[in-house]
Write a protein that binds this DNA or RNA. Structure first.
Lengths: 151, 151
DNA sequence: TACTAAACCTAGTAATCAACTAGGGTAAGT
DNA sequence: ACTTACCCTAGTTGATTACTAGGTTTAGTA
């Protein structure tokens, strides 16, 4: 799974917006507080607004705030409008592929992959990240042996 | 996670090789039995050989066979030499990124993502796929509610 | 009413990657 | 010698990634 710069920046910005509570935060403030390229971030914020995750206000005293509470926005909610489905096989949904012969059961593997991604990304909310308290099932994954080492 | 054509084809071909047991299988036979583009497949098989997953024999009666038993080759073993690490954040390993402020704990999320991918891809072997009997922990994922529906 | 802050929009660009294809060289059997 | 089949280098086309430039519109403030 390749987490694109776009998605990484988006989640970080969303965390910062969540952290500000009700006050609107400007794109520039987000860019400098998280160290993100300003113009690129602007276009991402726009996408997030169109996706219904942010509300914006123009003009002086303007900025962005969450369209829902931080508890109601998962990481998957942010990824999908920006990068598309969590898992795809050659541009197809895992359940759409069809395999023959010895590889007939490969489809189950890709479905399992998607399912496992969902069990993290659809469960972790912005509120969890900002508070630094991830759900137990997710913490369990990060504390597995070798979870922090490269392969 | 985007499963590239390359990886998809590679796993399918490896399944077909595994299915043939000890007999060497030609690239052409693999291409036609799995419906893959012949020349593209050839370059993939070459990569797999360089990665130490396949052994090849030239000339008449030649072809490919597994370098290890089907039980000892996981899907992750196939993905990594072709597409690189299972999870990357903007080209970095999840444990390498460092986040500040409200997004400080985002790193844990990406590590959890990688861990969850590993729990599928490092566990399923070619033997499992060919036999159609995936490990229990993986089957559990495919039988979750909505595991087969798009979001 | 002017001024200014800030979101909004269109467009463009350089570099990389994905998914192939072409065509010849080399080794191994018959 | 002949054929089969792997091996190797190179190239192509289109899309995607990660940005940047520059102007337009809206909304508060002096």
């Amino acid at each position: 799974m390749y987490i694109s710069a776009k998605v990484d920046y988006a989640v970080r910005a969303m965390c910062a917006v969540a952290d500000a509570g009700d006050r609107p935060v400007t794109a520039e403030a987000l860019a400098s507080s998280q160290g993100l390229p300003p113009k690129f971030l602007e276009s991402i914020l726009n996408d997030l607004r169109r996706a219904g995750l942010l509300r914006s206000q123009r003009g002086a005293e303007g900025g962005y705030r969450l369209a829902r509470t931080a508890k109601e926005i998962t990481v998957a909610d942010i990824i999908r409008p920006l990068d598309g489905p969590l898992a795809e096989v050659r541009g197809l949904r895992p359940e759409a592929a069809n395999y023959e012969g010895a590889a007939a059961h490969l489809q189950d593997v890709w479905v399992a992959v998607r399912s496992s991604l969902r069990s993290v990304l659809e469960v972790v909310t912005l509120a969890d990240i900002v508070a630094g308290k991830l759900p137990n099932s997710v913490v369990k994954l990060t504390t597995k042996a070798d979870a922090w080492v490269s392969r």
